[in-house]
């Protein structure tokens, strides 16, 4: 649904399907290495595309370790700090694995890390669900321009961008094919193309400037 902005302004692919596959394999190995076996790892994807990435990572982890990794989704809509800057958004699913998150190593998974506000909201949401042993963050693309003191533990690709650029992650499960596109936003109004399922970090480029004034940190 956000694709039209990419079609109107020719976007350059920065990651192709094989790259994404390689990157996820590497991240899976890094998780196993850092968690010393991934025994207590729980993967929580942030809707929409973070959930698909989390499921793919879980499959890789299972390949590597031989045991099933609990995977779920964590919707952050109700915890956003910019809810009052637009109409109420439709909610996405939150599904926490049956054994919960208490005492476990939770790895949050998202497609694009940008302002960091989505992750701030995710940390708040997680705090209402349980008390993990530790929380880590895995993202496919880190495009910079952080507005909060948040960093990723596992990064697929560091992508230096300007705030006028857009980063669009496409995944087979949602968009029919895999790829990451870097485009240029033509006008300010293009900032409002986001659909209800938008996760925030992917498309909220143009919102960033006004939202800094209107939004006090909700956390």
């Amino acid at each position: 649904m956000d694709d039209n902005s990419a079609n109107l302004h020719p976007a350059r692919p920065v990651l192709e399907a094989p790259d994404i596959k390689r990157v996820l394999t590497r991240i899976a190995h890094e998780i196993v290495e850092r968690a010393k076996g991934a025994d207590d790892v729980v993967l929580l994807g942030i809707p929409t595309r973070g959930v698909f990435l989390a499921r793919r990572l879980a499959a890789k982890l299972e390949e590597i370790t031989g045991s099933a990794i609990p995977v779920g989704s964590l919707d952050i809509t109700m915890y956003r700090d910019d809810l009052r800057l637009g109409p109420a958004r439709a909610l996405a699913h939150t599904e926490i694995p049956a054994d919960g998150v208490d005492g476990r190593l939770v790895v949050l998974v998202d497609d694009v890390l940008y302002s960091g506000r989505t992750i701030r909201a995710a940390l708040d949401a997680l705090g209402d669900i349980g008390r993990p042993r530790a929380v880590q963050l895995a993202v496919l693309v880190d495009r910079g321009h952080r507005e909060l003191p948040i960093r990723a533990d596992y990064v697929g690709k560091n992508l230096p961008t300007s705030q006028r650029e857009t980063v669009k992650v496409q995944l087979t499960e949602e968009d029919g094919h895999d790829g990451v596109l870097l485009g240029v936003r033509s006008t300010e109004s293009a900032a409002h193309t986001e659909g209800p399922e938008d996760t925030g970090d992917t498309e909220d480029t143009g919102d960033a400037a006004p939202s800094r004034h209107g939004t006090a940190p909700a956390g």
Binding site: D75, M78, Y79, L83, A90, L91, A92, H93, T94, D124, D128, I129, G130, A218
Partner: peptide, 18 residues
Amino acid sequence: TAEEMARFADRPIKKLPT
């Protein structure tokens, strides 16, 4: 939306900051 809200009711902390 109510279906999602119902899921929050099963949590130990049933409150949302919204």
